[in-house]
């Protein structure tokens, strides 16, 4: 099967520091790839290059077999979501969700229907008229998701989206993402530094360390790799049995 996203030998340096070394991998349609990486490993730079927000020094990015290197971010249909929800502060919940549709000049009736549907999906129908500062962290993150999903992006890039949430909200958001991801057949790259979250969210696991990317064939492969940290994590929890 032809991959949706094909990354080939992406390299990026800032000054004398090389942050990505010949990163190559493929992403199938409807696949969620979890990528583990510590701070400074180059994961955010990788996502920003894929979104068109940073320019790679070398390598090729292809989406549906079309070279994307010189395509501006607004033409890629790849949405990059930050750790912070970053809602537009001057727009209410409905208007935030409708943002991408308005940009695409869809009719008001279509926008209204789609926004209502999306509000129901994220369980925020009651909060449609609220402003961002009136929402909790989890609610803001839901709106941020809805705003991205409503435009049906080809690829969704999530940069530690639940990193700032408390444990309980984090679990709720993970469940919501999994539900929506399955329902909307999303193709996404999910960056996290949480091993359990990576295993829960991803169909496949990748790891980025000091700019070098490694994709595991299966979750078992990931577990078997001593350097992945999975065995140490399992051993830690086993001591309480």
């Amino acid at each position: 099967m032809e991959p949706l996203l094909h990354i080939d030998n992406i390299t990026k340096s800032f000054g004398s520091e090389t942050v990505l070394h010949n990163v190559s991998f493929m992403l199938q349609e409807h696949e969620v790839l979890s990528v583990l990486g510590k701070s400074g490993s180059g994961k955010t730079t990788l996502l920003k290059i894929l979104a068109g927000l940073e320019k790679e020094d070398d390598g090729t990015i292809s989406l549906s077999r079309k070279r994307m290197n010189d395509t501006p971010p607004n033409k890629r249909n790849i949405v990059y979501l930050y750790q912070e929800p970053l809602l537009f502060p001057h727009l209410n919940v409905s208007e935030n969700i409708a943002f991408g549709l308005k940009i695409r000049k869809q009719s008001p009736d279509v926008i209204k229907t789609k926004v209502e549907h999306m509000l129901a999906e994220i369980g925020l129908e009651e909060h449609a008229e609220k402003m961002p500062h009136q929402l909790s962290g989890g609610q803001r993150q839901r709106v941020s998701f809805a705003r991205a999903l409503i435009i049906e992006p080809k690829v969704l890039l999530l940069d530690e989206p639940f990193g700032a949430l408390d444990a309980e909200t984090r679990v709720q958001m993970q469940e919501l993402f999994k539900k929506l991801s399955k329902k909307m057949k999303l193709t996404s790259i999910f960056i996290t530094h949480d091993l359990k979250e990576a295993l829960t969210m991803g169909d496949h696991i990748g790891k980025i360390e000091l700019g070098h990317f490694k994709r595991y064939e299966s979750k078992q492969d990931f577990y078997d790799d001593v350097d992945s940290g999975a065995q140490q994590e399992a051993a830690f929890w086993k001591q309480f049995n």
């Binding site: 920003k48 979104a51 068109g52 927000l53 501006p72 971010p73 607004n74 890629r76 249909n77 790849i78 949405v79 990059y80 979501l81 930050y82 912070e84 970053l86 537009f88 943002f99 991408g100 308005k102 940009i103 695409r104 705003r147 991205a148 435009i151």
Partner: peptide
């Protein structure tokens, strides 16, 4: 934060002018 909002608007499909005008 402003820069991140500007970038986000672009990945959601806004041109530079639309980002300036709408965000």
């Amino acid at each position: 934060k402003t820069r991140a909002i500007e970038e986000l608007s672009k990945t959601l499909g806004s041109s530079s002018w639309q980002t300036f005008k709408n965000v």
